[in-house]
Amino acid sequence: MTLTINGEARDLEGPTSLSALVASLGLDPRKVAVERNLEIVPRSAYGVTALCDGDRIEIVHFIGGG
């Protein structure tokens, strides 16, 4: 299946969960926030959130700013 993650198309072996995706990207789930198709996914729900073909995922974190 193909997802759009932070604006980039990515092919993934499905089925998979959001927590597996975050881990496969090498990210610490405690340091990011995730939006799936414009809906926030609470951190506690990553494991039970199954990803679907065509999902648009945004993964963000805090950076320096004024």
């Binding site: 990207l25 090498g26 340091k31 963000v60 950076i63 700013g65």
Partner: peptide, 19 residues
């Protein structure tokens, strides 16, 4: 401190993180 929110750099997740 004020902080901004931006996309994670997926090509290099080992980049230093503010937190």
């Amino acid at each position: 401190v004020t902080v901004a929110l931006r996309r994670v750099n997926l090509s290099d997740p080992s980049q230093p993180m503010l937190v």
